[in-house]
Amino acid sequence: MMMQIFASTLRVSTPLIFAALGGMFSERAGVVNIALEGIMLIGAFGAAVGTLVTHSPWLGAGCGIGAGVMLAAIYGLFVIRLRANQIVAGMAINMLAMGLTPFLCKTLYDVTGSTPAVPISERFQSAPLYLSWGLVLVCWFWMKYTPAGLWVSFAGEHPEALDAAGVRVNRVRWAAVLLSGVLAGMGGASLSIFLSSSFSRNMTAGRGFIALAALIFGKWKPVPTAIACLLFGFTEAVQIRLQGVILWGTEPIPVQFIQILPYIVTVLVLAGFVGHSRAPKALGEPFRRG
């Protein structure tokens, strides 16, 4: 049973890791990304449709990523170019994805609930899992040792300094938001064609927000964030395993308490009761050149 929970933890954490890494780029560059949820959802849809059309999970995932980038571009247009409030626009992007996916589903397949099932031979077996951990290392290296990583950090911490150094802050932010579209789109793809067999309505079920929580829990750093994703994935795996299991007495274990634990811990961490987590200084502030 322990081995099963461990394996299933690794699997269900995969979409969270992709999305949280995407959120990391955007937030480290100073753009709050509540829209992760919607980007994941449309990514999951794009990937399912793409795989059904091309019969290849890789091309399908490419379609999911494309859909994610498109939605991220709309988000970027509003929050970077049109200086919309990032939280309001992010919520609107989530609603847009929640509304568009059943609509497109009906247009394409004449049903609103879910896409047809992707045959098992055309789905991912384990590639996204390895890819996600590979990306954790790449992101760690990128943020720590490359100039581009430094630009991202400065766009989020001291945008004026970056601007004075001759780097366009909003270009860095655009790149970061689009990159978060790539990664969250891939997170959605791993939800629909890796963990399940089709896209179904609202299938992200809050995972974008959980990825955001993991990001904060992990102090906006790649490796701790990935470990936080594992923790959140673990509670999901335990909850699936323990559903209806009776350990003592006559009632099944109330899995709700396991389920809400990571959220409470996140609140405690943020409040500084357990460790400390500090947001990038210019997070949420639109940048206008002086």
Partner: peptide, 29 residues
């Protein structure tokens, strides 16, 4: 909308609401 149209679903309300929010929030515009 699900019953009375060929292609449009009731989730259109979410799309409409999202577009209204985006329009009203676009300070730059």
């Amino acid at each position: 909308l699900d019953m009375e149209t060929e292609h449009v679903t009731r989730e259109l309300s979410l799309v409409l609401q999202a577009l209204i929010i985006l329009s009203v929030s676009a300070e730059g515009l």
